[in-house]
């Protein structure tokens, strides 16, 4: 009964959206969008217009987004932490294929994530996508090797330094360019379609990529690890660490 009700609600919502929203029809861009489309390339120097909007024209919102991500990961990590006295069944070690493949594939995956966020102003992608790819690489290591310990202190420092660096870049823009997170005059705009171009945008996206990558890796480690006993006997009576 509940399922029929949800299906009917879904059908009514779909019909309402279909009749009210003009899908697929080209609408005229408004005044702000026309300015972005007309002047985005020469004011920012980067080929990717989406990146220059996210980092430069709406850079303050991106700073707020990075803060929200940090708060949510901190909250989730606090709630899901293993309390003292909780224990769970230690997982069986994974097969030889998965272990070897994970160790071989870890470095290319991290390299691919770094490629995505360093080239954020040239190709589609950016800090958030590159950080998600790096976190997936760390997840692969966590799934393959059940005794893998992430260096939590180092990752906490890296994440905090990256976030601090973002705000510092904003203040640098304030000192040199005249407004918070300004792009003019802080770094040269350079030639179109080169790696070192578009002012501060590659630096900001590198910092965001590092921050998001380490954040999501810490969250995944806490979630997978909650309840794991480091070095104590597990439920089967064997010592943890015997592969």
């Amino acid at each position: 009964m509940k399922q029929i009700f949800s299906l009917a609600l879904l059908a009514i919502t779909g019909w309402l959206l279909w009749s009210l929203v003009p899908y697929g029809q080209a609408t005229e861009p408004g005044p702000v969008s026309s300015h972005y489309i007309a002047h985005g390339l020469q004011e920012n120097g980067g080929s990717n217009l989406v990146t220059s909007i996210v980092v430069n024209y709406r850079g303050f919102d991106t700073l707020g987004e990075v803060t929200v991500l940090f708060l949510s990961v901190a909250g989730a990590g606090f709630v899901l932490r293993r309390r003292s006295g909780q224990r769970r069944v230690a997982p069986r070690p994974s097969s030889e294929f998965v272990q070897t493949g994970a160790r071989m594939l870890f470095a290319p995956m991290v390299l691919f994530g770094v490629y995505i966020f360093v080239h954020g102003h040239l190709t589609p992608g950016g800090g958030f996508q590159g950080g998600a790819v790096i976190a997936s690489a760390v997840l692969m290591l966590l799934l393959a090797d059940r005794d893998h310990h992430l260096p939590h202190g180092f990752m906490g420092w890296l994440e905090s330094l990256a976030g601090f660096g973002y705000v510092l870049t904003g203040f640098l823009g304030l000192a040199i360019g005249g407004s918070f997170l300004a792009n003019k005059g802080v770094l040269p705009l350079g030639q179109w379609n080169r790696l070192f171009s578009a002012g501060v945008i590659p630096i900001i996206y590198t910092l965001v990529g590092l921050k998001v990558g380490t954040e999501l890796s810490t969250l995944l480690d806490v979630m997978v690890d909650s309840g794991r006993d480091h070095g104590e006997a597990d439920a089967h009576g064997q010592k943890g660490g015997a592969a």
């Binding site: 990717n48 990146t51 992608g125 996508q129 998600a132 790819v133 976190a135 997936s136 997840l139 999501l216």
Partner: peptide
């Protein structure tokens, strides 16, 4: 850009 975000998050994480 949106397709890459959806792929990076929906594929594994």
């Amino acid at each position: 850009d949106v397709a890459m975000t959806e792929a990076a998050i929906g594929a594994g994480l």
